[in-house]
Simulated scan of single mutants.
Amino acid sequence: MIDRSTQRSVGYGQATAADIDAGLRKYMLGVYNYMSIALLITGLAAFGVSQSPELLQLVYGTPLKWVVMLAPLGMVFFLSARIHALAASTAQLLFWVFSVLMGVSISYIFIAYTGESIVRVFFITAASFAGLSLVGYTTKKNLSAFGSFLTIGLIGIVIASIVNIFLASSGLSFVISILGVLIFAGLTAYDTQRIKLMYMESDHSEVAQKKSIMGALSLYLNFLNMFLFLLQLFGNRE
């Protein structure tokens, strides 16, 4: 982690605190813009696939469903491991492709839930996300230890979700959904602080853009997962 006092002493020439704060605001705005565009792409892709019986059959009725399920996860790992070696333009393109794949993989929600409940839960998620991200941005408390705890919890719900594929327990699914909302809510605040502290005024524009993309990816995943867990809890099924 980079302390803000350290950040203020780093830069090209004699950068003032005001210059650095303005740069930080621009950097964070870039992160949120990337995230918002990715969510829009995902929503459009999901809705588009849901309106085509042929595409739904192709995605969910053939072995292609495994590609659709696993490809987004593979791209997350690839971007995380190779972001340093990629050009910013390539990383951005991969992020948009990832957003499309995620949209295809969650297109079932438009079949399983009513449109009204999807919209309602989306706005609940958006309001919650905004508040939690603001907490992460403004808090003076170091959330790094909190983040480690949440990461362990995330691993736990992933394992529980895999187990429940075979058990098909509605009770366990309910518990997983509640824990999922809480964990991704906490990760939203933690990741916002982490992304903020990654900013350095002296970063080259290429490096800053790649940081923005990876930051947007983290917040995108937090938002989307929180939305899906809330939808499981409060969505009205068709």
Rank of each mutant, 00 (worst) to 15 (best):
R237H: 09
D3K: 13
A81V: 07
I155Y: 01
R237A: 05
Q232H: 09
V163Y: 14
L231F: 04
L24V: 10
V49I: 12
A208R: 14
I118K: 10
A18T: 13
Q57P: 01
G30W: 01
Y199G: 08
R25Y: 13
T188Q: 03
L187D: 08
A126I: 02
A85Q: 15
V135G: 06
L93Q: 12
G153N: 08
K210R: 11
F110P: 03
L93H: 09
T114W: 07
Q193F: 10
F47N: 06
L24M: 14
G156N: 05
E54V: 15
G235Y: 07
S107A: 11
A160L: 15
I152F: 02
S52C: 12
R194L: 14
S50K: 02
Y137R: 12
L221A: 13
Y113Q: 08
Y32G: 07
G156S: 14
G103T: 04
A185C: 11
M102I: 10
A216K: 03
S80G: 13
A189Y: 08
L86N: 03
F98S: 05
V49H: 01
F98P: 06
A85H: 15
W66I: 10
A112P: 00
M1C: 12
S105T: 00
A81M: 11
M1G: 15
L73P: 04
F77W: 14
V207S: 08
I165C: 05
V121P: 05
A46V: 09
G74Y: 08
A216E: 08
I2Q: 14
L230H: 00
G13Y: 03
Y220M: 10
Q232C: 00
G23Q: 05
G153P: 05
L150G: 00
R25P: 00
M102R: 11
G147D: 02
L44M: 14
G115R: 05
N225K: 05
G43Y: 04
V104L: 09
G147C: 02
F77A: 14
L93S: 13
Y60V: 01
P63G: 02
E201C: 00
S89C: 00
F229M: 06
A71T: 03
A45V: 11
